[in-house]
C-alpha cells in the first residue's frame, strides 16, 4: 500500500491532486460527473468583490499542446459565491476547499478575503495576483514584488486561514516575487499561472482572441512550470503548490520532485472532465513503478544529492 497523503499548511489531503481555479467552476457542476470527494481539494473559480461578465468572445484559441484563454475573471461575485455556490458545494463535497480570489486593488483583495474567511468550508485562500486577462488588474500585482507583498500583507491582516499567493510566470525573476510574498507573511506559493500568449487567424489576419492576447496553458508549459517550482522551492521555506501543464500521474510526481507539496491540474480538465479522477486512480500504480511508497517523502526530491 502506497501513501498518497500530503499536508498543506496543517490540513491533510488524501492526495495532492487539486483541480486548478477556472477549470472546475465551484465544484458542484463536476459532482454530476463523479464523486468529487476523491480529490485532495480543488481551487474554485477566481472570485472578485463584484460579479463580472469578463471579456468579449472569442475567448479561446487552440495552440500546439495547449490553449489560450481570455475569460477575464467571469464570476458571480463573492456575495453570490457565499450565498449560492458554497451551499451547493457543501451538499456534494465534505472537504475544505481552496478559495481563489482575484482583485483590482489592495482593498478589494482584502475585502473579498475577509468575507471568505468566515466560511467554514474554506480551508485556504489562494490569492491570484497574476491573471493576465484583466487590464489594470491582477497582473501589475503579479509582476511587481512590492505590490505582491502589499496584497499579501493586506490579506493576511483579515484572515486566520492559510494564504497562498498565486504567481505569474510572466516575470524576469520568479524567485524575487516568491520571496517578497514569503516575507510579507504568505503561508505558501502557487505557481504558475498562464503564460501570456496569442494566436493570429490566417484567414482573417487578425488575433483569434477578441482581447488579442490571453493566457497560454496546457502540456506545452509543463517544463516552464517545473523550472519555476524548482527555483522557488530552493529559495523559500513555505510550501509550493505546483501547476502548469500537468495531465498525468507521472507529471504529478515530476512536479513534486521539483518541490511541489500539492499539484494543481488545469487545462487537462477542459479536454477530459475526468482527468483528475483518472490521475488519482493511476497514482498508486505509477508510484509503485518508480519505487515511491509515500508521496510526502518525494517533495523536492530532485534537489538532493
Amino acid at each position: 500500500m502506497v501513501n498518497t497523503k500530503v499536508t498543506l499548511s496543517g490540513i491533510s489531503l488524501d492526495n495532492p491532486i487539486i483541480p486548478a481555479s477556472g477549470t472546475f467552476g465551484y465544484g458542484w457542476e463536476f459532482a454530476e460527473l463523479y464523486d468529487i470527494n476523491c480529490l485532495g481539494t480543488f481551487s474554485f473559480k477566481g472570485t472578485t468583490a463584484e460579479s463580472r461578465f469578463g471579456n468579449p468572445t472569442p475567448r479561446i484559441a487552440e495552440c500546439p499542446a495547449g490553449m489560450i484563454n481570455s475569460v477575464g475573471l467571469q464570476n458571480p461575485g463573492v456575495d453570490n459565491v457565499i450565498s449560492e455556490q458554497l451551499p451547493k458545494l457543501k451538499a456534494c463535497f465534505n472537504k475544505p476547499v481552496m478559495a481563489n480570489v482575484g482583485g483590482f486593488s489592495v482593498e478589494e483583495y482584502a475585502q473579498t478575503c475577509a468575507k471568505l474567511d468566515k466560511e467554514p468550508q474554506v480551508g485556504w485562500l489562494e490569492v491570484n495576483v497574476s491573471c493576465p486577462n484583466v487590464h489594470g488588474g491582477g497582473i501589475s500585482f503579479g509582476t511587481d514584488p512590492k505590490m505582491a507583498a502589499e496584497v499579501t500583507r493586506s490579506v493576511k491582516a483579515v484572515t486566520e486561514k492559510p494564504v497562498y499567493v498565486k504567481l505569474s510566470p510572466n516575470v524576469t525573476d520568479i524567485v524575487a516575487m516568491a520571496k517578497a510574498c514569503e516575507e510579507a507573511g504568505a503561508d505558501g506559493i502557487s505557481l504558475i499561472n498562464t503564460l501570456f500568449g496569442m494566436r493570429i487567424d490566417l484567414k482573417t489576419k487578425r488575433p483569434v482572441i477578441a482581447n488579442k492576447m490571453g493566457g497560454f496553458s496546457g502540456p506545452a508549459i509543463l517544463p516552464v512550470a517545473l523550472r519555476m517550482v524548482y527555483q522557488v522551492y530552493e529559495a523559500v521555506n513555505i510550501p509550493v503548490i505546483g501547476m502548469g501543464g500537468v495531465s498525468s500521474a507521472e507529471d504529478v510526481i515530476e512536479m513534486m520532485l521539483a518541490g511541489a507539496t500539492a499539484v494543481q491540474v488545469g487545462a487537462a480538465n477542459l479536454v477530459n472532465p475526468f482527468a483528475c479522477k483518472e490521475i488519482i486512480e493511476q497514482l498508486p500504480s505509477v508510484m509503485e513503478r518508480y519505487g515511491i511508497s509515500s508521496l510526502s517523502e518525494i517533495i523536492g526530491g530532485a534537489h538532493h544529492g
Binding site: 457542476e29 469578463g54 479561446i60
Partner: peptide
C-alpha cells in the same frame, strides 16, 4: 455557435449576455 474551450460548462470560454442573464 462560439469558440469553446471545454464544451461542458467548466471554462466560461463561450459566455454571452442575454436578457435573462449571462
Amino acid at each position: 455557435e462560439e469558440r469553446m474551450g471545454c464544451g461542458f460548462g467548466a471554462c466560461m470560454g463561450c459566455s454571452c449576455k442575454t436578457i435573462t442573464g449571462y
